[in-house]
Every structure is written in C-alpha cells, then in structure tokens.
Design a protein around this nucleic acid. Sequence first.
DNA 1: CCCATAGTTGAACGATCGCTCACAAAAATA
DNA 2: TATTTTTGTGAGCGATCGTTCAACTATGGG
Lengths: 202, 202
Amino acid sequence: MGVSVGRKQLWDQADVLARAMRLFRRCGYLGASLRDIEEATGLHPGSLYRVFQSKEGLFCAALDAYNDQVVQGRVRAHLLEPPDPVAGIRSFFTSTFETGLDPDPGCLLTNTAVESFTVPQAAAGVHRGLETIESGFADALTRARALGLLSADLDVEASAARLLALYQGLLVLVRAGAPVTKLHTITDGAMASIGSDKEGQS
Amino acid sequence: MGVSVGRKQLWDQADVLARAMRLFRRCGYLGASLRDIEEATGLHPGSLYRVFQSKEGLFCAALDAYNDQVVQGRVRAHLLEPPDPVAGIRSFFTSTFETGLDPDPGCLLTNTAVESFTVPQAAAGVHRGLETIESGFADALTRARALGLLSADLDVEASAARLLALYQGLLVLVRAGAPVTKLHTITDGAMASIGSDKEGQS
DNA sequence: CCCATAGTTGAACGATCGCTCACAAAAATA
DNA sequence: TATTTTTGTGAGCGATCGTTCAACTATGGG
C-alpha cells in the first residue's frame, strides 16, 4: 500500500510550519510576502505549492499548528496543569508581556481575527483557538472554586468569557506598546474581578 | 499673505477622509489598495498624492480624523455626557455589537495596533485614541463614584485601564464573529467587575 | 542499468502594487 | 485677453505580488 518510490522530502513539515507561524505572527498574512516566506522557511515556491496549494493553505496550516502547539501548550502549562489555578491564570496573562520569553511576536489568533476578512477559511481556526483558551479558563476557574480559592457562587462560564476578552484586549495593548506597569495593573484587576486580589482573600 | 490664485479644490477633505476611514476600518492598511481608495473616495492618485504625500500619509490623516470624530464622539456621547455614567459605560460596550448602528466596520485603533508594524508613524495616533477612551472611562467612573453609584474606594485608574482592555478584547471578539449572547455576557461581567451588576447593587 | 515516481529548483508569467508626471482645466491677476 | 497659479486627470512607470512549470535530482522496483 504505502508506495515508497521517488525522492524523499528533504524538509521537516513541522519545522517549516513553525517558521512560517513566526513570520505570520510578526507580519500578518498580507504583510508576509511569498519571498519573505521563502527566506524564512528556506523552501522554494515549488515545494511550498506542492504541499500547501496556496499562500492561504500555508497560512491555515500554520494557524492549525499554532493552535495545536502554542495555544494548547500555553493553556496546558498555565491553566490545566498548575496545582494553583489562580496563580496559573495570572501567569497566563503576565507571560504575554514579561521579558525573556519572546520579544512579542503577537498572537496569531488576535491578529487573524482582526485581519479575518482576508482569509475566510481561517475563521474556523480562530474560533477553535479562542474556544481552547476559554475552556482553559473555565477549567482553571472550576478547579479554583473546588479548592475554595474562589467564591462558591462564581459564574464560571461568564468569568471565562470575560477573561478571554480581557486576554485578547491585553494582547492588543501589548501590540500597541502599552507600558508594562499598565499591563500589570490590568492583570491585577482581572484577578480581582474573579474574586482573588493580589494579597489573597482567604 | 493668503494668496488666492489658481483653481479651487473640488472635493471636501473631511468627506474624503471619512470615506478613506471607512475603507481602512474594513480592510486594514495593507488590504486597501490605492485603486480601492480611488474608488472609495472618487479621487485620482494625483490629487491624493498632492495633499497627502503617500498612502501612509493618507492613512495617518484618516486615523487622526477617526480619533477626532468617531472616538471622541463616542466617548462624549457614552462616557462624558450621559447623566447616568454607569448606563453610559454599558452602552459604550453594547453599541459595538448591537444591530442597527453599523455593520461592523471594525475599530481603526484595534486594527492599527495589531497591524502596527506596517505604519510606524501611526503608533502615536493609536496611543492618542486609546488614551481618549481610557480617560473617558476614568471620567465616567469618577462621576459614578461621586453619585454614589459605585463603591467609594473604587480604584478609578485601574478600573479604567481594565475597561479599556476589555473593550479592545470585545472588539477582537466581535471581529472574530462571536455570538451576541457571549458579547452581552462579557459586557455584564464588565459592569459587575466595577461593582455594578445588572440588577443594581444599591 | 533503466525506468517510473516523487521532490527540488528557480526563472518567469500576468496581475497588481504604490506612485509619478505631462498635460488639461479652472480661477485670479494684469 | 494673456498670464500665472493651483488643481484635476489618467496613462503608465518600475517593483513586487502570488503563482506556475519545465528542467533537474534523487529514490526504489524490475
């Protein structure tokens, strides 16, 4: 069945998608030309088009990879796994602007939602990524409530939706170059709005 | 001094900027070609370039017009003038997604912040617009506190920053096609997070 | 060794991009 | 009316866009 005739593919698809993803996060879909993509990935247009059909196809594949690796990775690391879900939610926010991690390449979900008119097929990917984040918030909130860290009558669904909006807004402000102090203020307010301020509330 | 020799300009600059603004809100800077601009404004490239020097110049002028007209108009109408500042804040949010007003042309500040790499000179305009909104929130919160509608120990500055982030996030979700019920949930949560839920809190 | 197959390469296509400029048309001055 | 000055017009510039494809290179089967 698995015919093994012909030349072997010289490049790793995951690696190429990771490079394309980084370029799209920085420059957006329209801002990244095929020549830029060629330079970033090291692939010539023929190879790109044989596998991904078009620039849009590559973009959608990069968006899927972003969801599967970056988004799910961050959600798992900050929202699902930490024993202290409240601290996890906080670090999910602060990790977007605190130095060291990465020099602000931008969130592909935020950027694509704003650019959405350009690549209609990407809407599904944006929706999927946003839902991953939101259900991550919901999971962390539910766990925190069960641990007694938050009020028992907290509306998890509404709080998760609000945290998602706050998170997207924070990313916009990061892109706009807001000072880190303001981003911290917003994060502190977000934590307080779910009933957990910095000092703890017993 | 004011020499009055030569042909009269046939077009109204404010009207042209309003049309360009609408196009940029919908398509973004990169997504709007000069041919699109020509069609939207009715101006030929010669006239455009004589007055605005470049596509970037036109964009920055449109962004300034957006700040002076749309942003300041909305801030005044919802945050500065209403006798009930709390209701004003709520309508400032809901007016972005409730039907009738406009079919979601997008916020030029949000879009430009995300696209910021493209037109570096636009950063100042984005900053100015965001500050207009944030100080509008601060004004409404201060008035609401003075009226006894909100807790006396409310941190106005922090709440205004959080409302700005929430507002930008809401606009991202609107662009992403989030259902109206979710947008309402987020708005209700935003109001509750400043200490005023739907039913009122005495 | 030769052929069939799969993958790589990069020149080049038509379309469109942002932008320019020579020219025509109007308004004020002489 | 002739002249000067400003504005409108739109063909067309070089550059770059997304995309294609014919030639070339590796691989496995017979």
